[in-house]
């Protein structure tokens, strides 16, 4: 009984870390893309305003 409990305890912590790290990865990737797009768009706007 205690051995199989251990499986569930490990599963719980594993699921916790999978979710946290997966979401973290998603945010970091999305963040990189969003920041790059933003820099590009601001560059473009600055050029437009100068011309």
């Amino acid at each position: 009984m205690i051995a199989s409990n251990q499986t569930f305890i490990i599963a719980a912590y594993a699921v916790t870390w999978v979710v946290i790290l997966a979401y973290l990865l998603r945010l970091v990737r999305k963040g990189g893309r969003a920041r790059a797009e933003y820099e590009r768009a601001v560059q473009l706007e600055r050029q437009e305003r100068q011309s």
Binding site: L27, V28, K30, G31, A34, R35, E37, Y38, A41, V42, L44, E45, E48
Partner: peptide
């Protein structure tokens, strides 16, 4: 972090509109 992304996306939209 999620808020930063939302702000970036919105700002990009605005800049694109201006252009």
């Amino acid at each position: 972090k999620r808020y930063e992304i939302a702000r970036l996306e919105r700002a990009t939209e605005h800049a694109a509109e201006a252009v």
